[in-house]
Structure formats: C-alpha cells, structure tokens
Design a protein around this nucleic acid. Structure first.
Length: 701
RNA sequence: AGCGGGAUGGGAUAGCCAGGAGAUUCCGGCGGGCUCAUAACCCGCAGACCGGUAGUUCAAAUCUACCUCCCGCUACCA
C-alpha cells in the first residue's frame, strides 16, 4: 500500500512526542518539536490542510515520585512543567495549533472510552502477577522503585532489569531481597490482578501496517523484528493513584486502585489535542474525526527511543478501537554535544532557556537542527559547528543575497523593477519548489532547507554573473531585468525557507513590501510578483564572532567538568558494592570546596600553560621542600622552583613530562629564581602530565 | 546475545530504497575574479581506490554474505 503524495485532499495531523512533565527542555527535545513544526509548516505551504498538535505527558511514576519528594501534589507538579513548556515553545517558533496535556478532561474521557472499547471488543484480560509492595509506605512499587539482588548473577539489580550485572530483563517478582527505593525498607511481594492488552492478536495487522508505513526506515524495520520474535501482551495498569483511572465496568472487581499505564493515555493525547483544536476552532474549520476515524493523514515525529510505542502498541490500540492509523512515523536521531552523548544528569546539554538567554535568534537553531543531518541521523551540536552554519549559510549565502539584492533594487528602483521575470530564473525557482515537495514527501527537512539555501546560492551566482552594477548606465533595461529576477529569487527563498526560519522569512516578506503573513503563503507564491515598491532593507542575519564561540565553548566545558567532578563523588558511592558510603562522604569533605566565583574565558586565556619535560631536578640547600627544576618547554628551558622535594624521588624526575604555568611572575626562593610554576594535584603534589603526543611547548587550552 | 542505524577527500555531510561515465554540498587549503553586498560574493585547483573481505552483474558507494569498529534498541523504565 502506498500513499498519494502530499498534498492530499484529506486533512492532516502532525504530532511530536509529548514532553514528559518532569524537567527542563534541551536541544535534544527541541530537535523533534522543531522538526515536526517545520514539517507541518511545509505541508501547509504545499496547500495541505494540516494542523500540529501536542501536549504535556503528565502521568507516570517519575512524576508521582518526584512530586512526593517535593511534598507537592503530582498534578501541581506536572502542571508547573506544563506551563513552562507552553511558554517555551512559541519562543522557538514552534507553533502548535493546540497544546493540551494528558490529565485534562478531553484526554481522560477519550482514553477511558478507547480502553472501554478495547475491553468490549475482548482485547483486554486480567492476569495475576507479583507486585512489590512497601508495607511502611503502604503502597505498591512500580518496578523501577524496587532494588534487590539479581537471581541470575547475584549483582544488585532494579526491579525490572539487572542493569549493573548480567543485563537480564527481570519479571515482576524475580528480584530477591527486594527493598523499596522510596523508604529503603524491605519490600514484600503481593499478588495483584492487572489488566493486559492483547497485543499478540495484532501481529498480522501490524505486519501489514508496517509495510505501508512512511517515515524513517528505522521506524519500519525495528518493529518487524519484534513481531517476528513474538509479541507479548502488554500490562496496561499500575498500582498508583496518579494517572487515569481504569474505566470500571459494572461487574468489575479488579481495578480498584488501578490507573492506566502512562503509555496508554499519552499517545491518545494526539487525538485529544486534535479534538480540542477542532472544538475551539469549530468543526467546519477542521474535522478531527475525519482524520482519526476516516480519511486523514496522521504523521508522528518522535525520538527513536519510543519507536515501539508508536509502531506496535499505538497502532494496535487504534486498530482495536476502530480508529485510523498513522501514515508516517519519523524517528529522529539523537543530539550529541561535541561528539559525546547528551547527559542531563551530567549537565552536558544545551538547555532551551540557556540558548535564548545567550541572545540567539531561535531561527538559527531551527536551521541548524533541521539541516545539519537527516531526520534519522544523529546530529552533533557544537558552538563551533553552529557558528560555521550560521555564518556560512545564513549570513553568507541567504542573508547576503537577500540584502544585496534588495538594497540594489531599493537604491536604483526604489523597489521591484517594472519588468517580468526571465525564463531562466522562473525555471530555477520552479525546480526549487519541486525540491521542497520531494523533500517533505521523503520526510527530509534537510532537503527542504537546502532547497532554499541552494536557491539563494544560485541567486548569488546569478547576480555575480550578470553584474548589474555595471549595467545600470550601459544597459538599463538589462539591469532592470537582472534585479527584477533577483528580487523574485529573494522572495522565493523566503517562501521556501519559511518552514525552517519563520521569523526571518516574515521579516523579508515585510521588507519587500508584502502584506500579511508569509506563513499563509503557498509554494506557488514564490513565483508571484512582489509589490512594486519597498523601503530600504536591513540585514536579517548577523555573524557570530569567534570570541563569542570560544566563550560559549569554554562555558559548556567548564560546566560539564564541574558536573563530572561532582558525579565522580557520587559514582564512588554507588560503585562501591560494599556500600561504604561514609568513606566516600569523608573523602569529599576533605576536598577544598569549589569556588563559587566564575571567571570568564578571557581570564583563562591569560594563563599561559605549556607542556614541558623535566630535564634536571635537585634539592635546594637549606629548604625542606623546595627543589630546583629545569624544565624544557620547547622554546627554552626554564628554571623553576617547586615544593616537591620530599614528595618525589628527585633522581627519577628527569625525563618526566609535566605541565607548567609559563607566564607566572618570576620569584626568588632561597636565592634561586623561579620562572614558572609546575602544576600538581593536592597535598601529595601528584604531578600533572600529558597522555598523548603533545609536543613540548604546546599550549594547554 | 539478537536486532536497528551508521562507517564516503583534513573535518562535517549527500547519494544507497528505484546499481551505469572514478561521486554531493558546506568548512578548511591553494590560486584567481569582482566590488552591488555583512572582509561578503563569484570562478578555478588540489584532495576520497565510498570501513574490510568475498560474491551477484556487462556495470556496485549503491544488491547479497561474512567480518571489524561506533551509536542505539530489546517492550510492564515516560
């Protein structure tokens, strides 16, 4: 089964994975939301009737537990994050038609209705399983909140997985000597009746479904294997208070305290949010039931960690409840920072708020995140690469073309020259429009962005090749023609780039004197003549300077290093299987506290630290600790005095590599001049050295 | 362990699904041009035997098998 290309006659719904109401947003999240936003905007420029909806994921154990730890109601806790998200998205031009949350009435009702239908259709059954229970806290413990001993390898294990030992998946009830991670007390097992959704009944359906599924290849291929391995039924209830209650039937004795597993109600928010939009907007404007129950185009853009939820559980639920299934699932890759995995606990991340606080325009990040790699690829973020993209493509190619064309047009014609677009340019723009169409149909936002950038590139080449500045006097007609073409290209670039950089495209739109919103423009408008006159244009993108990048990079690295140092302290704790926490605590307490005062990168740069090699070492007469060293730092050999006499065997030092602060003020100690400072750690003067091939004299940076 | 994704000039990235002239684009390097423009822009050059091995084919970066190295997933952890 293959789908008709976008745009279709049907309404479309685009969604992104729901943010889990439990923490700050970072660029890893943003990548998905921005990608989906750009996808939706592109569909709209194609003329597709399309909306973009999402909502906060409010339920689940992490929210419940974190709220409890803070002594607040889980709803209040989650709503606080929800509010923050809702405020943040517009700042990145992520324009949801509706943004709800899973705890609201619409979602609650819809979820219960769907579950009831699945129950009525016979897809849900009860089964007794062993569930850990904390008698002191008087509550059942979802798997992750139980720790104990792995029955297979004897290592410490979590309730669901032997994460430190044999990696085995553990069924409920398997962990030995269970303790509650909430109270630390021993837990006991109790038999509980839970509800299971018969996913296994949908194997054939899912196989067919995957055959026709559009999107990224990983979202199609991975689930196939799971189906082949045999689908297991899905436990869809939890022993918790926080969540959506299992809908009770009259004869139902089981699910008293049961709420639905968070992954049941989370994707239903896609439907609920669409419904809220339609009801707010009037069903005439958008028919949510057509999309979800009739002929509609449903596209989910998600992270690749939640593929199975969207390609197995979710379509099975939809099928079982008589709903329409997604047309496409696009699973994005991850974001890495400077080549290493993003880690929120280690503070290795670029936070949404942080990015904005640094004063960067959201469109820069939008462009970077959507065009740096394919949707499916992992994308590395570094301030260096960010600068390169912004300065090279947005400033140099797009911005410069926009500005030079419009400025020339303004100065010589006070707007658009009165002539028609040349055939060559019209065809080039049409080709770019086709590239956008192909891009979105291939779920390639990169392709969409590049179609626009390449058109700007053509514009630069075109204006250069025709040199209108030479023609204004010699051949005014020809000059007018060329500039007319350039203004058209500038307008076309704006239309094509709108899905990626909506703000900047709008600014250009205004500069060429167009009324209204460029977001309402269609691709074909790229070929429509711009208004006759416009005002003097301004520059839309500005360069990011090198020292700014250096500053940001240093800031990030310092932060990660600080977090890593903290982490090491805690890691010692958890790695220590004998559980000697007291020792670890003491070790940390002995350390000098970290300085609160931060220094700028400039301050760091003031330190000239070099790689050196100790050539000679001898004690200084009359001094207890001081030694006179000769250190080769490439350019020269320095004499330095260091307080390491009693801590090292001086005879063994020559030949040792070391690290020297070279621009230390000279000092005289015991009559010996010291011309630098050897770096060493702690009271034991553990000498710092290098571990690679750094040449003598190389700067530490 | 199984599975998924990746491995392309110094760096980064496209092409692979629909196999065909020694391969895209960006950054960097070298040389040139232009001066309308944000020291921008345009042109040219150098540079990769497309992770390894073996196949299929007239023809493979593109298909098949095996292998190596990264990243990730394996469902009652959102």
């Amino acid at each position: 089964m293959s789908h008709e290309d976008f745009p279709t006659e049907n309404p479309a719904v685009v969604t992104c994975g729901l943010p889990y109401a439990n923490g700050d947003l970072h660029i890893g999240h943003l990548r998905g939301y921005i990608g989906a936003d750009a996808f939706n905007r592109t569909l709209q420029t194609l003329g597709q009737d399309s909306i973009y909806v999402c909502g906060s994921d409010m339920h689940g154990t992490p929210v419940a537990v974190n709220a409890e730890q803070q002594g607040v109601d889980p709803e209040d806790f989650a709503l606080e994050w929800h509010d923050q998200y809702e405020e943040t998205f517009p700042k990145f031009n992520v324009d949801f038609d509706n943004y709800g949350h899973t705890h609201d009435e619409t979602n609650t009702e819809l979820t219960q209705e769907i579950v009831r239908t699945l129950d009525d259709e016979g897809y849900i059954y009860e089964k007794e399983i062993q569930v850990a229970y904390d008698p002191d806290a008087d509550q059942y413990l979802p798997d992750r909140y139980v720790e104990g001993t792995c029955p297979y390898c004897g290592e410490k294990a979590r309730g669901d997985e032997c994460d430190e030992g044999c990696q085995r998946h553990l069924e409920p009830g398997e962990v030995e000597d269970p303790t509650s991670t909430i109270t630390g007390n021993p837990a006991e097992y109790r038999e509980r009746t839970h509800k299971f959704f018969e996913v296994s009944a949908f194997a054939d359906f899912l196989t067919d479904f995957l055959d026709g599924l559009e999107g990224t290849s990983n979202a199609r291929n991975q689930p196939r294997q799971w189906i082949e391995d045999g689908l297991q039924d899905w436990c869809i209830t939890r022993d918790m208070d926080w969540g959506i209650d299992y809908p009770h039937g009259d004869d139902d004795s089981a699910g008293d305290d049961l709420v639905l597993y968070v992954w049941v109600d989370a994707p239903i928010e896609y439907i609920a949010s669409s419904k809220q939009y339609a009801e707010r907007d009037g069903t005439d404007a958008f028919d949510w039931e057509q999309v979800w129950k009739g002929d509609g185009e449903i596209v989910h853009i998600i992270g690749r960690d939640i593929i199975q939820h969207h390609t197995i559980f979710w379509p099975a639920m939809l099928e079982g409840a008589g709903y329409n299934k997604p047309r496409g699932v696009a699973a994005t890759g991850f974001i890495t920072i400077n080549g290493k995995g993003l880690s929120t606990s280690r503070n290795r991340a670029i936070w949404a708020k942080e990015y904005l606080d640094e004063g960067f325009h959201p469109d820069l990040l939008r462009y970077y995140l959507t065009t740096t790699g394919g949707l499916q690829q992992d994308v590395d973020f570094s301030w260096d690469a960010f600068q390169e993209t912004v300065n090279g493509e947005l400033v140099g190619t797009v911005g410069n073309f926009w500005y030079r064309s419009l400025l020339f047009a303004y100065r010589n014609y006070e707007g658009t020259p009165e002539t028609t677009v040349s055939e060559e340019v019209r065809e080039r723009i049409e080709a770019a429009i086709d590239e956008v169409r192909e891009g979105v149909n291939d779920y390639s936002m990169r392709g969409v962005g590049q179609a626009a950038t390449r058109l700007a590139q053509f514009g630069n080449e075109y204006i250069q090749r025709n040199e209108p500045w030479k023609l204004t006097d010699d051949d005014p007609d020809r000059a007018a023609q060329v500039i007319r073409d350039c203004v058209q290209i500038a307008k076309a670039v704006a239309v094509l780039l709108e899905p990626i950089t909506p703000d900047k495209a709008q600014a250009l739109w205004a500069q060429i004197g167009e009324d209204g919103e460029i977001a309402d423009a269609h691709l074909e408008d790229a070929l429509e003549a711009p208004p006759r006159s416009f005002d003097e244009p301004g520059e839309l993108f500005e360069k990011i300077e090198d020292d700014r990048v250096a500053e940001l990079t240093a800031k990030l690295e310092e932060r990660v290093a600080t977090a890593a140092a903290d982490d090491e302290g805690t890691e010692t704790e958890s790695d220590d299987t004998t559980g000697d926490e007291a020792a670890a605590m003491t070790a940390t307490e002995d350390l000098e506290p970290l300085l609160e005062d931060r220094i700028g990168f400039g301050d760091f740069q003031d330190l000239d630290i070099r790689v050196g090699r100790i050539e000679a070492a001898e004690g200084i007469e009359g001094a207890d600790d001081l030694a006179r060293l000769e250190v080769d730092i490439g350019f020269e050999t320095r004499q330095v005095v260091a307080g390491i006499k009693q801590l090292h065997d001086l005879d063994e030092l020559p030949g040792t590599r070391c690290v020297l602060l070279a621009n230390m003020e000279p000092a005289e100690l015991f009559g010996v001049e010291s011309n630098g400072m050897i770096l060493a750690a702690g009271d034991d003067a553990d000498l710092l050295t290098t571990h690679g091939d750094a040449a003598l004299g190389e700067k530490i940076q």
